[in-house]
Write a protein that binds this DNA or RNA. Structure first.
Length: 452
DNA sequence: ATCGGCTCGCGCAA
DNA sequence: TGCGCGAAGCCGAT
């Protein structure tokens, strides 16, 4: 495999001892460069290999629905690893500390882990570095071209990162190697991981509906096949939420149950081409890379401090503009605004764990319009998305919301109240693009006590 | 239905 | 230094 995918965080003299792969972003056994690197190192040194996962006791914003999706997927991943003679070890607690403890106890010679630009992951990795002496390698399995290779600074917009990615695609869009079943068995008995899966309470619509999505890496590949065959030909309708043409892959991709690189390879293998394919590849390659680039090079990726200068100034200038309405966090959450389209989008997210791509922009921009300040709006949007979207707590989410509210990766537009020069969107625009009333009818929450 | 203006700054050509 | 152009638009003129 291309050694440029490997970012050495801590070097170490070669030593005898098992290799650990600490999985915390790319939750899959297949198409995983981090696991591939760990396996190849263990093969080379003739050592056993284990995959270690630690269930964080506290993961801000995550809910039972998220944990269910993750843990059900991990059961499949553990089975797949078992076929490869690689044990899957589930720990619980503070991830960096627990993985370090495990590495010390088993005298590991190397720890390999996933790349992730979010702050919480940087803290976990710092914890691990302080709590053990093992060398640590980080591998970017989330992006086709590793984020650290694409660019070493914050990119201005998609236009500036696109040529940098395109130049490197020939080098990094390669097939994942097939490796032998691992020949060196783990020396000690592994307690089979037991995930206590909290079941949705009866009457918990959100929990039930979100779980109708089949989790796991096999399900992710099946969804991909279905999308490429049945929906991609109609992808020109992607901005119409009444059309079921979106990939619906974001939850699987967010949890790393499906590799973005596999998506690209599979699209190519099927010989697909044309405008629809170009649009889809732009999303799965360029926009994803841009999101990781934004979070990697913007410490305040979830704060107004991360907004570009022109947008911050403009929003500040309009901070005292009268708002047509101000809603509390609770009113937003319950979908109790005056705008039926906004309420419908919010309801769709609450019930299914996802929101249509076009509506995400509209939804976030209206939160800006109906909040006391841009900072309040950003907090509200991030809180709701992290908590209720299955693909929340992802660089994509922080970047998309920063685009909507703070003009990140966008340019200025006609100055107007509240928004200043940040791009404005309204109901009239939505009506021009699709049948708003039809969408609203399909996602109007039934009132309590109403018959169905 | 379609067009131009709004508005900013990067990256490239010169 | 000048110029083209961009992550999803709006609005008024024609």
């Amino acid at each position: 495999m291309n050694s440029r995918r490997i970012h050495v965080i801590r070097r170490g003299a070669p030593s005898q001892g098992p290799v650990l792969y600490w999985m915390h972003r790319d939750f899959r056994a297949a198409d995983n460069w981090g696991l591939t690197h760990a396996r190849m190192q263990a093969l080379r040194s003739g050592q056993p290999l284990a995959v270690v996962f630690c269930l964080a006791s506290a993961f801000p914003g995550a809910t039972r629905v998220h944990f269910n999706f993750l843990l059900q997927g991990l059961q499949k991943t553990a089975q797949a690893l078992n076929q490869e003679n690689i044990p899957f070890i589930a720990l619980r607690g503070e991830p960096g500390l627990e993985v370090a403890r495990f590495a010390r106890e088993h005298k590991a010679s190397l720890v390999v882990t996933d790349f992730d630009p979010l702050r919480i992951k940087a803290r976990w990795i710092e914890d691990l570095l302080l709590a053990c002496d093992q060398p640590l390698h980080e591998v970017d399995s989330r992006n086709t071209v590793p984020a650290r290779i694409v660019s070493n600074r914050r990119e201005f917009m998609a236009r500036t990162i696109r040529p940098k990615i395109t130049r490197l695609l020939a080098e990094f869009l390669d097939e994942f190697p097939i490796l032998p079943v691992h020949p060196h068995p783990w020396p000690t008995t592994i307690v089979k991981p037991e995930f206590a899966l909290p079941q949705p309470k009866s009457g918990d619509k959100a929990g039930r509906q979100a779980l109708l999505v089949e989790p796991g890496e096999h399900a992710g590949r099946a969804l991909l096949q279905k999308f490429l065959k049945e929906k991609l030909p109609f992808y020109m309708n992607r901005n119409d939420p009444n059309h079921d043409v979106c990939s619906n892959l974001s939850a699987h991709v967010h949890f790393g149950m499906l590799s973005a690189q596999r998506v690209v390879l599979e699209t190519q293998r099927m010989g697909l081409a044309g405008e629809n394919v170009d649009s889809f590849l732009e999303e799965i390659i360029v926009r994803r890379e841009l999101s990781d680039n934004f979070c990697l090079h913007t410490p305040d990726y979830d704060s107004v401090a991360g907004f570009p200068e022109w947008a911050s100034e403009s929003l500040h200038k309009h901070r005292n503009d009268p708002r047509p309405a101000i809603y509390s966090a609770e009113e937003f959450k319950e979908g109790k605004t005056h705008d039926p389209l906004w309420n419908a989008a919010q309801t769709q997210m609450l019930l299914t764990g996802k929101m249509h791509g076009y509506l995400r922009m509209y939804w976030a921009k209206k939160i800006l319009e109906w909040s006391p300040t841009a900072a309040d709006a950003l907090n509200t949007a991030i809180l709701l998305n992290d908590r209720h979207s299955l693909d929340g707590r992802d660089s994509n989410g922080y970047t998309g919301i920063a685009w909507s509210i703070g003009g990140v990766h966008d340019r200025g537009w006609t100055e107007r109240p509240i928004f200043g020069k940040v791009r404005y969107m309204n109901l009239a625009g939505a009506r021009r693009k699709f049948d708003v009333d039809r969408y609203v009818r399909s996602w109007t929450a039934p009132r309590d006590g109403a018959s169905t």
